[in-house]
Amino acid sequence: MAYTPQQLKQAIENGLPDSVAYIEDTKGTGDHFNAVVICPEFEGKSAVEQHRMVHRAMQEIIEGDLHALHLKTLTPAAAERAGYHIA
């Protein structure tokens, strides 16, 4: 089963309050994704904890047929430093 970037975005943003997720389907096959997630709740947490929060938000998809997820997590302050424009 393949997923759309919109499905991943919805799952992450619904599961993580005030988060913004940017998703790219890197191969166009619905099973390899790049994701950038910006969330204020990442503040003060390690990278491993931040990634686990995203994994939990998209648990059903991760347990499904997702082959690869390249994930980058950022606090709003780190996102601003890195030049992401939050709409």
Partner: peptide
């Protein structure tokens, strides 16, 4: 100690 997957290690 568990440090993560490929994207975390690349950032580190």
């Amino acid at each position: 100690e568990f440090v993560g997957g490929s994207s975390i290690v690349m950032e580190m």
